[in-house]
Structures are given as structure tokens and as C-alpha cells.
Amino acid sequence: MNFWVGLIIGLILGWVIEWVIDWLFWRREDEGTAVASRTMDIDLQGKLAAVEAEKESLAARLQEALSKEPEVIVQEVIKEVMVKQDRLQKIHGIGDVFTRRFNEAGVYSFAQLAAITPERAREIIDPEEWQNIEPEQWIAEAKQFAEKAQNS
């Protein structure tokens, strides 16, 4: 019987020693991991708060941009819809480059070109010294084309 009692006492002592070692060494690492995990959680919460603040800032900027954007879009649509764009290249002496310059200045139709002064046409075209332009002739031709379009 002494053998069985010794075996049971040895098993109980072994279990107690293993439990003490577990608590002293292995659980301590788990606690360290828990502390590291809590530190990481705090760090992630700080990053999340920073991202939320940036998101709110971007949302405010987006709303501001959207409040301004429709005005620009409406102006462009009005130019395209309300003003029939004529092919200004039909006028002798006006090519693609001069047409683009007139369009950038808001002149899209023969009627609009006929309404500007020769000086304004020179400002819009901004010719080089070697370029010989005739805005008076362009305006006269534009008036003719605009009258034909009205009569049609």
C-alpha cells in the first residue's frame, strides 16, 4: 500500500508543481501578450480615430466641392445646349486653332462672332507678328452665315 500512496502523493505533487510553474512562467507570458494586445488595441483605436477625423474632413471638402461644382456644370451645359455651335472653320481664314481660341473665349456661333468687334477678335486670336488676320472680313462673313441660319 505504501507504493500506491506514494504514487498518488507523487502525482498530486507533480500536478501542483506543474500548476505553480505554469502560473509563474507561462501565464506571465500570456499576461504580457495581453498587455501587448491592449497596447495594440489602444494604438489601433488611436489610428481609427485619426482615420475617422480624416474621413470627416474629406466629407466636408467633398460637400464644399459639390456645392460649387454644379454651377460650373450648369454653365458648361448652357453653353452647349443654348448656344448652337457653328462650324467657324467655314469662314475664310479661320482654321481649327482659331476656332479653338474662339471657343475658349466663349464664341461658338456665327451670331456670337458677328457680335464682337474686330479688336476683340484680335485679342482672342492673339496672332503672331507674321500672321496676317482679317477679323473685319471674318465678322462680315459671320453676319452672312448668321442671317442665312435665321432665315432657314
Rank of each mutant, 00 (worst) to 15 (best):
M1H: 13
M1I: 10
V5N: 13
V5R: 12
G6A: 10
G6E: 10
L7I: 11
L7S: 14
I9P: 03
G10V: 01
W15H: 07
I17F: 11
W19S: 14
V20H: 07
I21K: 09
W23C: 07
F25C: 01
W26I: 13
R27F: 12
R27W: 07
R28A: 09
E31Y: 06
T33I: 12
A34C: 02
V35I: 12
R38M: 10
M40D: 08
D41P: 02
D41A: 14
D41I: 11
D43C: 11
D43L: 11
L44Q: 14
Q45I: 09
L48R: 13
A53S: 15
L58W: 02
L58S: 05
A60R: 05
R61A: 08
L62G: 06
Q63Y: 07
E64N: 06
L66A: 00
K68P: 03
K68E: 02
P70W: 13
I73A: 13
V74S: 13
E76P: 06
V77R: 09
V83Y: 12
Q85C: 02
Q85Y: 01
R87G: 05
R87D: 12
L88N: 03
Q89M: 12
K90F: 06
H92Q: 11
H92N: 15
G93T: 06
G93P: 04
I94A: 05
G95K: 09
G95M: 07
T99C: 06
R100V: 07
N103M: 04
E104R: 13
A105F: 04
S109A: 03
S109I: 00
A111C: 02
A111M: 04
A114I: 02
I116E: 07
T117Q: 04
R120P: 00
E123L: 08
I124H: 08
D126E: 06
D126L: 05
W130V: 12
E134I: 04
E134M: 03
Q137A: 11
Q137C: 04
I139V: 06
I139A: 01
A140Q: 14
E141L: 02
A142K: 00
A142C: 10
F145L: 15
F145C: 00
N151W: 08
S152M: 02
